[in-house]
């Protein structure tokens, strides 16, 4: 469905010279590489998460794939089209939803914006009514459709944005931070909706989010990008296996244990009686557990993987 080969995007950015006159009359520009020769493929019906810190190139990638931005170089083929040629047949098969962007008419009910999209995407009346009803049902928001957009909360507005964007049942959906700024409950609702939508309509979804919860809940495969380069492109579950060399041992000490008599043979990562946390090398795990069980009086012991967020942060630091 999506094939990207050697994609590069450079922006021309005004270079500050710390001199107002020079900045006005002799302005200089520098090239900033937003995407540096990246290549990847995405299959039909995949939900892929794009992860990266601010300025890594996630949104730029999405904007190039959807035809908003013109690439500096490289080849892109999506559904048999070159995105920037803006072929209406291509645009009818995609949707772009951004948490910080608004396509609804602010002063009017969302239903008016839906009507507009019905005409733009040439959806027949029967299909239109069914799609609105289906999407509103999954999002549980039928009552909000006829309220002016300006009177809706951010979470409610996001639901309306999703209906407006998905009304034409796009094959490919770009989601750029769809849960940004939402409370935890709304975030959960949106995640549930996206999961249901993808399963029900077999859509291909590319998602960027700063919330790892979004990615963990939705994406099986992730593409991690930093400084415009792809540093990981595989299943999410494999990240820990491939990149984490540590395990976490969490111990709850016995209530009867006297803290004064406690001697800690190994320096813990965290200690606040009765809780101790050790970070240990995977290879030495059996040995450490043996040592702990022999020397510490505990009521509970668990071994966990390092949180995925920590592993990814470490990847960013190393890249």
């Amino acid at each position: 469905m999506i094939s990207v080969k050697n994609l590069t995007k450079t922006y021309l950015v005004h270079k500050k010279q710390n001199n107002l006159l020079k900045d006005i009359f002799f302005r200089q520009y520098k090239k900033v590489v937003a995407l540096d020769d990246i290549s990847f493929d995405i299959r039909d019906n995949e939900l892929v998460g794009f992860i990266g810190p601010n300025g890594a190139g996630k949104t730029t990638t999405l904007k190039i794939l959807s035809g908003i931005l013109y690439p500096t170089s490289g080849n892109i083929n999506i559904l048999g089209y070159i995105p920037f040629s803006k072929n209406p047949e291509f645009l009818k098969q995609i949707a772009f939803v951004a948490g910080q962007r608004n396509q609804l008419i602010w002063d009017l009910p969302a239903s008016d914006s839906f009507k507009l999209n019905q005409e733009i995407y040439e959806i027949n009346e029967q299909e239109y009514k069914k799609n609105v009803a289906d999407l509103a049902e999954i999002l549980n928001c039928l009552k909000m459709i006829d309220k002016p957009v300006k009177t809706l909360s951010l979470g409610e507005r996001m639901k309306m944005e999703l209906i407006a964007a998905l009304l034409h049942r796009p094959k490919l959906v770009f989601l750029d931070e769809p849960t940004i700024g939402l409370d935890l409950f709304s975030q959960q609702n949106i995640r549930h909706f996206l999961k249901t939508y993808q399963q029900k309509y077999q859509a291909t979804i590319i998602l960027t989010s700063h919330y790892m919860e979004d990615v963990k809940a939705l994406a099986k495969r992730v593409i991690i990008i930093n400084h415009g380069k792809i540093i990981y492109n595989d299943q999410l579950k494999n990240i820990i296996e491939k990149y984490s060399s540590e395990k976490i041992i969490k111990i709850t000490l016995d209530d009867n244990c006297d803290e004064k008599n406690l001697t800690l043979k190994e320096k813990p990562f965290f200690y606040s009686f009765p809780e101790i946390i050790y970070k240990v090398d995977k290879k030495t795990l059996p040995e450490k557990i043996k040592m702990i069980t022999e020397t510490l009086p505990f009521s509970d012991l668990t071994v966990e993987d390092k949180p995925i967020e920590e592993v990814i942060k470490e990847m960013f630091r190393k890249s």
């Binding site: 035809g67 209406p88 047949e89 645009l91 772009f96 951004a98 962007r101 608004n102 733009i120 995407y121």
Partner: peptide, 13 residues
């Protein structure tokens, strides 16, 4: 300036 033009560019018109 708000980036709303992005959503105009992806419409099939």
């Amino acid at each position: 300036t708000s980036g709303g033009f992005d959503l105009v560019l992806i419409k099939p018109y």
